[in-house]
Design a binder for these strands. Structure first.
Lengths: 118, 118
DNA sequence: TGACATATATGTTATTGACATGTATATTTC
DNA sequence: GAAATATACATGTCAATAACATATATGTCA
């Protein structure tokens, strides 16, 4: 790899989870649509559907979301997901944790800029 | 797990790498001492030595740091590490990426606070 | 009818970091 | 001077995560 061309990407681990919870707070919906909201929240073009559905199922097992099939509406039959009360609490916990992460990164950047004034 | 008691920790993946580069910018040093600087940069009590030495070796293989044994100084013989020019560039790349991560988290928090005024 | 979008789902794999363990020397304490 | 502890470097193992590939079935449009 040529100097200055490393693929360094500072990713927040499991960021998709709080992002999904935030997307769900926008109202109950099905996976495929949630994927679009999610992409907007995260700021990417698209998200991985496979992992999204897996995450939804695991969140449901933990009581973070609840779901039921919706066959009434037009088109393809969908499974509609909704944030539970536990889910709201979990989102709050994530927000707290993300504030801390934000501060840790900010502290790093301050320390860098201190000795690297632009 | 009781409601409201999840262990959600928003960690930046591979954060130890930029933190180590920043610690190294403070001047050449050996692994054991770098571990202390590193802990301070990250804001934890201690870091995992095993992973640190593995990281140092892999960074050296990629030309990010250079090292040599120092048998002159008192006590235990140590290997001294130093940031190369490539290392400086990589740190810059990390800083750019971390600024973006910072902004992504900030955007998430703004979006959350929008509909959740304190 | 063939292509594409919608919708949900599972399988596989590399990367990462936590934890445990191993080795050796230096220093302190009793 | 023996034992405990700190310094210093290093490898092994494993679970969680996320990227990528694949599978399935239906709806829509040209």
């Amino acid at each position: 790899m040529a100097p200055g061309e490393w693929e360094v990407t500072a990713r927040v681990e499991r960021f998709v989870e709080p992002a999904l919870l935030l997307a769900l707070r926008g109202g109950r919906s099905h996976g495929y649509e949630l994927a679009e909201r999610l992409a907007e929240v995260i700021g990417v073009e698209s998200v991985d559907y496979g992992n999204l559905y897996r995450l939804l199922r695991s969140l449901e097992q933990e009581g973070i979301v609840s779901s039921e099939w919706d066959d009434q509406s037009e088109g393809h039959s969908k499974r509609e997901y909704e944030l539970t009360d536990s889910g709201e609490l979990l989102l709050e916990a994530w927000v707290e944790s993300l504030r801390q992460a934000d501060e840790r990164i900010a502290a790093f950047l301050r320390r860098y800029d201190e000795r690297n004034p632009t």
